[in-house]
Amino acid sequence: MQKSFVTTEIGNYFFGIDLDLIREITRFIEITPVSLAPDYICGLMNLRGQIVTVIDPGVHLNLGKRSSGSKSSCVILKSNIKNLTSSDVTGILVDNVGDIISVDDDSIEPSPPNIGEVDGKYLNGVVKLNNKLLILLNMISILNHQNMQELSV
């Protein structure tokens, strides 16, 4: 079995997001910051009339807050993902979007408790590519409200 991932850059790391969870990826990002919101929330964005909550995974991963730059993209996730407590449309702010790659299920290795400064709690595993390490994000745990609230407390 093969699985497809969209490769992204967050901080200096190379992350993979499960393609099945992604609705679309947008480049033109104009985010309205929301005061008093938890710090992993970048703010809200207008995606063709729909309000998208933009989340900064850097806060979860212990990589610090993102500020949107010229290459920044927003990975918009599907809103009907299983095991998700909230039905809001959410997007993940990343520093750069690379490619779509397919990897064999077997080549996915369990993730160590941490990779460099990256917290292992939000990871699904790692894949060794030719010259890079692709870290697979566990979107459910990043998005899930309970986790989020614990984080904000």
């Binding site: 809200l44 009339g49 909550t53 407590t85 959410t90």
Partner: peptide, 26 residues
């Protein structure tokens, strides 16, 4: 537009809207 769940704890907003210029406002 309904308030995203992630923002409910802020207390100060009832929802969000999109202004004429396409920007989101609370």
């Amino acid at each position: 537009k309904p308030l995203p769940e992630y923002l409910k704890s802020t207390q100060c907003y009832t929802g969000a809207t999109i202004m004429g210029d396409g920007k989101v406002a609370m």
